[in-house]
Simulated scan of single mutants.
Amino acid sequence: MPATPAWPPRSAPRLFVDGPLAEAMVLTIDGPQAHYLSRVMRAGPGDAVILCDDQTGEWAAEVTQANKRDLTLALRSHLRPREQVPDFWLCAALLKKPNFDLVLEKATELGVRRIQPMLTRRGVADKLNDERARTIVTEAAEQCARTALPEVAEPAKLDALLRTWPEGRALFFADETGGDPAAEAFRAHSGPAALLVGPEGGFDPAEREAIRALPQARPIGLGPRILRGETAAIAATALWMAVAGDWHNSLAQQSPLA
């Protein structure tokens, strides 16, 4: 006899919803999410949807009713608890909108816990659309099967960030003038950490001096080439995850449906 197909299937769409979710709960999805499920994914009664609430973890739900404007879903099983992402912050200078959108998306996929946009003297951007940022990180988390949304902080001026920097958190500073090789610096440190990456024009001398004066700051180099702001943020974050983050145990932590 043919094997019974796994349920929920690997192709089931994923959505973040308001929580907390609970066993046997029935909820209604409307608005853009209902349009996505019914019009884009063609979900109908009997189909599976994976739901996350950023609180209790990941749930398998079944569509029980599909109307023109909404869908009713019934939770069937709890698949896994909310994941524990590494205690790693990305402090990235605001960039032009498409470039910073990319940073938000990839930082989420890579497993960053907190994204701190920064205002710097040479930066060309000074505002962040909060709603757009939340949409980007939520869609990225849905795509990569992440169950914990990253915190996206309000943009902060660099000097204010340095004044209030937590005593026990290392600040790896991507300094274009040079520093310890990034992989070696990451490997030598254990505990809470953050990465500081500048804008398109880099940090000015006064900013660089202020950063280096912070006891927790550790200047690092990212190779022999000059990297764009978004490239430096993504590359260094990936390197930290590989050397000091959770990539080494990724198979053990992987979603059963990923």
Results as ranks from 00 to 15, higher is better:
A12I: 08
L79K: 10
E58R: 05
A194M: 05
L79I: 13
D159K: 06
Q33D: 14
M241L: 08
L73T: 03
R10F: 10
E154D: 14
A140E: 04
V17E: 03
H248L: 12
A6L: 15
W89C: 00
E105G: 11
F172W: 07
R69P: 01
L75Q: 05
A185K: 01
R208W: 04
R134M: 11
L110C: 03
V26M: 12
T138Q: 10
L73K: 09
P8C: 09
D53C: 05
E83S: 08
A60P: 02
D87K: 08
R212Q: 10
T64K: 11
I234L: 15
C52T: 12
T120H: 04
A140I: 07
C52A: 15
G229A: 13
A183W: 11
L75C: 10
T56L: 11
Q216L: 01
T147C: 09
A43M: 14
G245T: 10
D180W: 09
I29P: 01
W7R: 14
V124W: 08
A22S: 15
F88D: 02
G111M: 10
L110K: 04
T138D: 03
C144N: 07
R80L: 12
V112H: 03
D30L: 06
A242P: 09
P155N: 03
D30P: 10
L158C: 09
W247Y: 15
A133G: 00
A92D: 00
W89S: 00
G111F: 10
T4D: 11
T64Q: 13
H189G: 09
L227D: 06
Q116G: 01
A12G: 07
I211Q: 01
R114Q: 09
T4Q: 15
V63D: 05
